[in-house]
Design a protein around this nucleic acid. Structure first.
Lengths: 188, 188
DNA sequence: TAGAATTTTCAAAAATTTCTGAAAGTTCAA
DNA sequence: TTGAACTTTCAGAAATTTTTGAAAATTCTA
């Protein structure tokens, strides 16, 4: 049966195209999209047939999606094949992708910069460059922590925060007032 | 003169590698890194020599960085060459990259999903798929708005917010109390 | 324990992206 | 105008990433 019809088809193909921007290749993007909109678990052959890609490609894609923890293995009684579904809700999925990207896009750079900033600069030019690097480091470090904070919020709070809109400014002012003189308690 | 020494070298090469994860290719990543840590404006020949890439490659890279509005054209008296520097502060840069990525990673998908959700589903399966697509849409829409809100915050507020850490939970509670019965004013 | 069913691996092919460098285009001073 | 100083373009080359599919590995049943 053709699983790739109508809107599902458009959705899956689009996710394939966007895949590269989101950190995976076309096939992986398509697989994730199909498993997401198709409620029932699918096996590797079904995926390969629906997406018209090789069995090997599907196998690698499944491995990658499992590494991201975006899909779950299922078994059906009397069937030896491995079946897979999208793991968790759309929110869970977004959270996972967000977290994984934070790791890939921030951590390596933070770790390099920490290293570099330990060295004494050799000359005037390097000293100036190091100053810039420190600024980059401080910003990325802050971003990383913020991303972490967001990752840890439960869904209710995250939703509240995201819906604040420009109200966030007012809320920050409100905090200033309430907090009064108690100097910058940042609590980690 | 060799601009690529010591820590600057390591920094620039690393940014080249990370480039692809951040949405540009290696040369563009290296160019941006070099222009960022090197305080003074550089011309295309200097960039090509320092990074050991072709003149044509540098020309394309400069065009792309200008399209991102990450670099600025400068002129020096008595010199016909075009010189470039990183535009604005590190914060400005981060903001620009953030904003540009939001556009590339969210907008096309939002626009496709808006389209798809207008159609009546053809059958039961498509209806179920559409329901999932709506969930994806709602989440991405919310994310997009939140990203927008963050983009618009001034540096002071952004800093405050990012430094809140887990304090953000308490702040949200605080809001509940103060707001009292005034039902969900979200203000866009 | 054999062998059928299934999944994984990985070398080579295909597709895609990036880079080069010569040629074409532009700008400016004289 | 001319031509020297620059910059941009873009077809083809090189590098990189993705995909294929046959062979190897694994797992299960009988």
């Amino acid at each position: 049966m053709d699983l790739l019809t109508g809107q599902t088809r458009a959705f899956v193909l689009h996710f394939g195209e966007m895949g590269s921007r989101w950190g995976f290749n076309r096939t992986v993007g398509q697989m994730l999209a199909l498993l997401t909109v198709h409620g029932e678990p699918l096996n590797a052959d079904q995926l390969a047939e629906a997406l018209r890609v090789s069995r090997g490609n599907v196998s690698m894609g499944l491995k990658e999606l499992q590494a991201w923890r975006l899909i779950e293995l299922r078994h059906r009684p009397g069937d030896r094949k491995d079946y897979f579904t999208a793991a968790g809700s759309i929110w869970d999925m977004a959270r996972t992708v967000f977290e994984e990207r934070r790791k890939r896009e921030l951590d390596p750079t933070l770790s390099l910069l920490r290293q570099l900033l330990l060295n004494e600069p050799d000359n005037e030019r390097e000293a100036a460059a190091q100053e810039k690097m420190r600024q980059v480091y401080d910003l990325l470090e802050l971003l990383d922590q913020f991303a972490n904070t967001l990752s840890r919020l439960d869904e209710r709070d995250l939703l509240k925060l995201m819906k604040l809109g420009s109200g966030v400014t007012r809320l920050l002012e409100l905090r200033e007032k309430v907090k009064g003189g108690v100097a910058g308690k940042t609590d980690r």
